[in-house]
C-alpha cells in the first residue's frame, strides 16, 4: 500500500514539466527515504535524478519498496488537470497495475481522482559516485535559462569555462559567435540573485545546448541553479526543491575525437 499526500501539489506538476521532454517512460521508486526516479534520455547522453524526500510529504505511507513504471507524458497529462493550489495524493495498492492521483481543492469542495495505467519498463540504473568538482557555479535559474535560450538561437553547442574572472558561456553558429560572461556577485540583499563561483581549477567543457534547454524546464522549481563541472565528467545541473529534495540533470560532455 502506497499513499503519499503532498499539500503543495504544484511541486509535482512542475517536476513533470521539468522531466517529461527528456524522458518518455521511467520507473518511479518509492521507499522509506522518499519518492525518486533515475532515468536516461533515449540516446543515453543525459540522465535525470529526482528525489522527493518522505519528510516533505504531509502523509507518507510506503509499506514496501515499490518501482512503478509510468509514461511521463501521460502522468503530465493527468497532473495538468490538478489546480495549482490543489493537494495531490498518490495512491497505489500492492500488486496493482494502476496508480491513482487524487486532487483536492484547498477548500475541499472539489475532489477528483485520476487512475493511470502502469507499465513495465526495463530501465538501466547507473551508479553515480560522489565527486569533488573542479568548479561549482550557483546562479539565478532564470538567468541560466535565458543564456541557454539565447545561445540556442545561434549555435548547437555551448562551451562553459570557469576561471577566476567568472563563468563564460560561448557558442558558434553559421551566423556568428556569442560569449556571455557572468561574474561573481554575492548579492547579500537578494540571495536569489547571487552568482557564486567556487573554483578549485579552471575548467572548460562543451555541451549540446538542446539538452541544457531541456534542463531549464525545471526553472519554476527553484530560484537558483547549481552547475558542477569537472574535466572528464558529466556536468551536474541541480535545481533544489525547497524542503523536499532535488532534480539533478547529468549531461555527458562533448569529447575530442
Amino acid at each position: 500500500m502506497l499513499e503519499l499526500r503532498l499539500v503543495q501539489g504544484s511541486i509535482l506538476k512542475k517536476v513533470l514539466e521539468a522531466i517529461k521532454d527528456l524522458v518518455n517512460d521511467a520507473n518511479f521508486d518509492c521507499s522509506a527515504t522518499g519518492f525518486s526516479l533515475q532515468a536516461m534520455d533515449s540516446s543515453h547522453v543525459a540522465l535525470v535524478a529526482l528525489l522527493l524526500r518522505s519528510e516533505g510529504f504531509e502523509h507518507y505511507r510506503c509499506d514496501r519498496n515499490l518501482s512503478m513504471g509510468m509514461s511521463l507524458t501521460n502522468m503530465a497529462k493527468m497532473l495538468k488537470c490538478a489546480g495549482n493550489d490543489d493537494i495531490v495524493t498518490i495512491k497505489a495498492d500492492d500488486g496493482s497495475d494502476t496508480i491513482t492521483f487524487m486532487f483536492e481543492s484547498p477548500t475541499q469542495d472539489k475532489i477528483a481522482d485520476f487512475e493511470m495505467k502502469l507499465m513495465d519498463i526495463d530501465s538501466e540504473h547507473l551508479g553515480i559516485p560522489e565527486a569533488e568538482y573542479e568548479a561549482i557555479v550557483r546562479m539565478p535559474s532564470s538567468e541560466f535559462a535565458r543564456i541557454c535560450k539565447d545561445l540556442g538561437t545561434i549555435g548547437d553547442t555551448v562551451v562553459i569555462s570557469v576561471t577566476k574572472e567568472g563563468v563564460k558561456f560561448s557558442t558558434r553558429g553559421d551566423i556568428g559567435t556569442a560569449n556571455i560572461v557572468c561574474r561573481q556577485n554575492t548579492s547579500i540583499d537578494k540571495p536569489e540573485e547571487a552568482t557564486i563561483i567556487e573554483m578549485q581549477e579552471p575548467v572548460t567543457l562543451t555541451f549540446a545546448l538542446r539538452y541544457m534547454n531541456s534542463f531549464a524546464k525545471a526553472t519554476p522549481l527553484a530560484t537558483q541553479v547549481t552547475i558542477s563541472l569537472s574535466s572528464e565528467l558529466p556536468v551536474v545541473v541541480e535545481y533544489k526543491i525547497a524542503e523536499m529534495g532535488y532534480v539533478r540533470y547529468y549531461l555527458a560532455p562533448k569529447i575530442e575525437e
Binding site: H44, V45, E124, G127, I128, T157, A252, I255
Partner: peptide, 14 residues
C-alpha cells in the same frame, strides 16, 4: 571536431 559522450562512458550500470 568533438564527439558526443555517452553516460555509459562515465558511469557504470548496477
Amino acid at each position: 571536431g568533438k564527439l558526443q559522450g555517452s553516460m555509459f562512458g562515465f558511469y557504470e550500470k548496477y
